[in-house]
Write a protein that binds this DNA or RNA. Structure first.
Length: 495
RNA sequence: GGCGCUGUAGCCAAGCUGGUAAGGCAGCAGACUGCAAAUCUGCCAUCCCCCGGUUCGAAUCCGGGCAGCGCCUCCA
């Protein structure tokens, strides 16, 4: 079964056919590091992380490149406000970015190039464009790309030049021959970081850095280029123009990246989460309140191309769901090991002694990811397997060796499937305690106080004073604490 | 104005290279429980924004609307 991807360039799904069989070059547009990362970053990098993991699981050798944009107007502005060196400020926030992505369980890319480390490559690329007549230096220190020299300009974003003309504007001091032309190199202004170039001291324009870095690390033509859908225009549109003209065939977008993946937005109340709207949450803020793995599960609950709303409600739902998954895993481990027979419970059980957490699960999940990385579908498939596993665990009586083996297989499959999604890799017991304490914290509950009340209730139960025992339970329940009396004692969790 | 995306049960969300609606949350009933919680079982969209069309057959294809959002300025 081939891997199908939705390609923005063609607007449809098609088979992923690597340029070099068995190998995939993937470039993810990285963050501009001038502040802490927000949920939008979390969303896309978790998604690309799953893409990389899945392609690797399918036997492809993926070279994963993700840049840091560390030379940029916003960085310079922020650094100026703080009296800090721009490159140093960017380096600091790159470290913070790593901390967030590590917490979210994202694998580090194979290469993480920075603009500041690729100035010679950028200058060379611009020089090539000037030499070939695709770019010009009007003498004010800037270099511009001649949009009209590239016949396919705007193809990725479905724009034509006349449409664009209406919205085009030229900033004061620019010397564009055509309002649609864009800067490849910007002449240095006082106080800005600067590097020498044939056109005078200056710094790269916004788009050229990605063209230079993909070329250096993945070659002139490579397989997949990813980013947020807000980058389709102008960033990716301009990247294609530069790269195709400098080192491609000068005609076709495919001679740069062969396919483009774009992710949808994280929204708040149906509006795009963005800094300019001020309606954003940093990853840090969210992780103060929720387990990172819960956030990850939440982010994978919607297909990557779609927008979705962020809310406390849905996020806590995801975290509770994560708790269910780990509880099931813990139970399956325990029963499979033959320890502590499951509580004598359970309703109707199918004639075969419980639906098998079946052998087709792994294959079906793989097929779902093969189809344009359909993570929500995988979660649905997982749900059915977990229900079946629970049913098997809850069967009355001692488990047969076959049943135990089936549960062991389930736990194995679940963990293996989780690995490709970056989920379910932790020890269940410890994770469940962490989830519980998080939830307790959000409710403003004091763990020690709850434990104390629980001890009182145990004493009451021992004395068969059920009235008192129930009163305590109801009181705790009113606070959102659910008590579970089981064969191995009493545990609790936060609803 | 141009381009694009989305519209599926109370809510979240798959399906959309056509064949008679995954999954989750909430809700209801049942099993289990001293009572609960958890877990499991059953129920829960004659219908997929609206109107036409193609077809033996459409949530899925085509045409026309309506609504929301996004890009066209920095942005994942």
């Amino acid at each position: 079964m081939p891997i199908q991807i939705h390609d923005t360039l063609t607007g449809g799904k098609h088979e992923l056919t690597p340029l070099r069989p068995g190998q995939v070059g993937l470039y993810a547009c990285g963050p501009t590091v001038y502040d802490l990362s927000h949920l939008g970053h979390a969303r896309c990098y978790v998604v690309w992380d799953v893409v990389v993991r899945h392609l690797r699981a399918r036997g492809l050798a993926v070279k994963y490149v993700r840049n840091f944009t560390d030379v940029d107007d916003k960085i310079i502005k922020r650094a100026g406000e703080r009296g800090e060196d721009p490159v140093a400020l960017a380096a600091r926030f790159a470290d913070e970015f790593h901390r967030d992505m590590d917490a979210l369980g994202c694998l580090r890319p194979d290469v993480e190039p920075r603009v500041s480390g690729h100035i010679p490559e950028i200058v060379a690329l611009i020089a090539a464009l000037v030499e070939k007549g695709f770019a010009y230096a009007p003498g004010n220190g800037d270099v511009y790309f001649s949009v009209r020299r590239f016949p396919e300009y705007g193809r990725l974003s479905g724009r034509n030049l006349d449409d664009l003309l209406a919205g085009a504007r030229v900033a004061p001091g620019e010397a564009k021959r055509d309002p649609l032309d864009f800067a490849l190199w910007k002449g240095a202004k006082p106080g800005e970081p600067r590097w020498p170039s044939p056109w005078g001291d200056g710094r790269p324009g916004w788009h050229i850095e990605c063209s230079a870095m993909t070329r250096k690390h993945l070659g002139d033509t490579f397989d997949l280029h990813t980013g947020g859908k807000d980058l389709v225009f102008p960033h990716h549109t301009n990247e294609i123009a530069q790269s195709v003209c400098a080192c491609g065939d000068g005609q076709h977008a495919e001679s740069y990246a062969r396919a483009w993946l774009h992710n949808g937005f994280v929204e708040i109340d149906d509006e795009k989460m963005s800094k300019s709207l001020g309606n954003f949450f940093t990853v840090r803020q969210v992780l103060e309140r929720y387990e990172a793995e819960g956030l990850r599960l939440f982010l994978l609950g919607t297909h990557y191309r779609r927008d979705f709303n962020f809310s406390d409600t849905v996020l806590s739902e995801a975290e509770r769901r994560l708790g269910y998954l780990y509880e099931t895993l813990e139970k399956a481990d325990r029963v499979a090991a033959g320890a502590a027979p499951a509580p004598a419970q359970g309703g109707k059980v199918p004639a075969d002694g419980g639906a098998a957490p079946d052998g087709g699960l792994v294959e079906r999940c793989r097929a779902a990811l093969d189809d344009d990385f359909n993570t929500p579908q995988v979660l649905g498939l997982l749900a059915e397997a977990f229900t079946a596993a629970n049913a098997l665990c809850d069967l009355k009586g001692k488990k047969t060796p076959e049943q135990r083996e089936r549960l062991a297989a389930f736990a194995r499959d679940a963990r293996r499937l989780g690995e490709t999604r970056g989920l379910l890799q932790r020890a269940p017991g410890e994770t469940l305690r962490a989830l519980r304490d998080r939830a307790a914290g959000r409710r403003g509950l004091d763990t020690a106080a709850v434990e104390a009340r629980l001890a009182e209730r145990q004493a009451a139960r021992k004395a068969r004073d059920f009235a008192r025992s129930d009163a305590i339970r109801d009181e705790l329940l009113a606070q959102g604490v659910a008590i579970m009396d089981g064969p191995e004692g009493t545990s609790w969790k936060v609803l």
